[in-house]
C-alpha cells in the first residue's frame, strides 16, 4: 500500500468513528456556556440567600444558624431546576447544530437511548438523594452529593462521547469529596465544580481539541516543520 493510501484509510476510519458516536457531546463552547450559567446561578443564589457575594469567597465560613426557611428552599430548588433546564438545552441545541452542520443524523436511535439512560440514571438517583437530605434537614452534604453524582453521570457516558468527559467527571467527584470533608464552604465548592471546572474544561477543549483550535493548529505547524 502507498503512504497516502494508508493515511486516507486511517483518516476515513477516524472520521466514521467520530461521526457515528459523538453526535451528542459536551463541546468546548457548550461547556463554556454551561459553566457561565452555573457561575451566574451561584451569584444569584448567594445574593438571594445572604445578600452579598461573600459566601463565594474561600475565607467565608457559614454560621450555623438553623435551617433555612421553606420559602428560600423552594426558591433554591426552583433555581437549580432552571439551571439544569438551561444547561441541558444548551448541550442539546449545540449538539443538534453541530450534527446539522456536519450532515449527521440527530435522532433517537439505540446509541442515543443508551447514552441518555446512562446519564440520567445516576443524575436522577443523586437528585432524589439530595431532595431527601433536604427533607431531613441535612443541608451540609447536598452540594457535595450533587457534584459527586454529576461526576458519576459524566463518567458513565464517557464511552459514548469524547473520552475526555471522563476526566471532567473525575474532577467533579474530587471537588465533591473535598467539599464533603471541608465543612462550611458548600457554595464555594459548588461554584468551583459546576462553574469553574466547566469553564476550564471548555477552554482546554477549544484550545487543544477542536479541529480548528488555535493551539491545535500551532502544534500541527510545529509537527509539520519537524517532519
Amino acid at each position: 500500500m502507498e503512504n497516502e493510501e494508508i493515511v486516507d484509510t486511517l483518516s476515513e476510519i477516524r472520521n466514521l468513528m467520530e461521526r457515528s458516536s459523538k453526535v451528542l457531546s459536551l463541546s468546548g463552547t457548550s461547556s463554556l456556556l454551561v459553566g457561565g450559567c452555573a457561575m451566574a446561578g451561584a451569584f444569584v443564589a448567594s445574593y438571594f440567600l445572604y445578600g452579598s457575594l461573600e459566601p463565594l469567597h474561600w475565607n467565608y465560613v457559614y454560621e450555623r444558624s438553623g435551617s433555612p426557611s421553606l420559602e428560600s428552599l423552594a426558591w433554591l430548588i426552583g433555581l437549580a431546576a432552571v439551571l439544569i433546564g438551561i444547561s441541558l438545552s444548551i448541550v442539546f441545541a449545540m449538539s443538534y447544530y453541530r450534527a446539522k452542520r456536519l450532515h449527521l443524523s440527530f435522532r433517537m436511535d439505540a446509541v442515543m437511548r443508551k447514552m441518555l439512560f446512562s446519564f440520567f440514571l445516576p443524575l436522577v438517583a443523586g437528585g432524589l438523594l439530595c431532595l431527601s437530605q433536604m427533607y431531613n434537614g441535612n443541608y451540609a452534604s447536598v452540594a457535595s452529593n450533587m457534584l459527586i453524582f454529576y461526576g458519576i453521570a459524566l463518567i458513565s457516558i464517557s464511552s459514548f462521547t469524547y473520552s475526555s468527559t471522563k476526566h471532567l467527571g473525575m474532577c467533579e467527584i474530587l471537588v465533591g469529596l473535598s467539599d464533603s470533608f471541608i465543612s462550611g464552604h458548600s457554595l464555594f465548592f459548588w461554584m468551583v465544580g459546576f462553574g469553574i471546572l466547566h469553564i476550564l474544561y471548555g477552554a482546554w477543549f477549544l484550545i487543544f481539541f477542536e479541529k480548528d483550535g488555535v493551539m491545535r493548529r500551532f502544534f500541527m505547524r510545529i509537527k509539520k516543520g519537524r517532519a
Binding site: 476515513e12 468513528m17 467520530e18
Partner: peptide, 9 residues
C-alpha cells in the same frame, strides 16, 4: 469502524 466505535448499529 462504526461497529468498533459503537459496539452495535
Amino acid at each position: 469502524s462504526v461497529l468498533m466505535a459503537n459496539g452495535s448499529a
